[in-house]
Amino acid sequence: MGIVELGHTGLWVNDLDTMRDFYGRVLGLTVTDEDPEHGVVFFSSRPDYEHHEFVIMTGRTAPPGSLLAHQISWRLDGFDALLEYYQRFVAEGTPLQQIVTHGNAFGIYFFDPEGNRGEVYWPTGIEVSQPFRKTLNLDQDPQAILAEAQRLLEENGPAYQPATAGPPQP
Rank of each mutant, 00 (worst) to 15 (best):
A147S: 11
Y86A: 01
L68N: 11
S45G: 15
E5M: 11
F132C: 10
D35I: 06
G59M: 12
T18D: 12
E34F: 07
L82P: 03
E148K: 07
I56M: 04
Q130G: 09
V55C: 05
M57S: 13
Q97A: 09
A105N: 01
R20N: 06
T61Q: 13
R46Y: 06
A144I: 09
L146D: 00
E148F: 00
L96C: 07
R25S: 14
V40T: 09
P162I: 09
D141Q: 13
E34A: 11
R117D: 00
A69H: 12
N156P: 00
P131M: 13
V100E: 01
P113C: 10
V31S: 04
V31P: 01
V26Q: 01
A144T: 14
D33L: 05
I126S: 05
E114G: 06
E50N: 10
V55L: 10
G118L: 01
Y85V: 02
N116R: 05
S66W: 04
L27M: 14
G24A: 13
N116P: 05
Q143Y: 08
R133K: 13
E53D: 13
T58S: 11
G59H: 10
Q143D: 15
Y160D: 09
G7K: 07
P158W: 11
A163I: 09
E84F: 00
L82H: 01
F89M: 04
F22Y: 08
Q98P: 00
A165R: 08
E114L: 11
L11W: 03
I56Q: 01
G7S: 14
Q161A: 15
V120T: 04
R88L: 07
P47N: 08
T164P: 00
R60F: 09
T61D: 12
D48H: 13
G24Q: 10
K134Y: 12
D33I: 00
E148A: 09
F43I: 03
Q71W: 06
F111C: 02
G103S: 05
L68W: 06
I56R: 01
T94F: 04
L11S: 02
P63N: 07
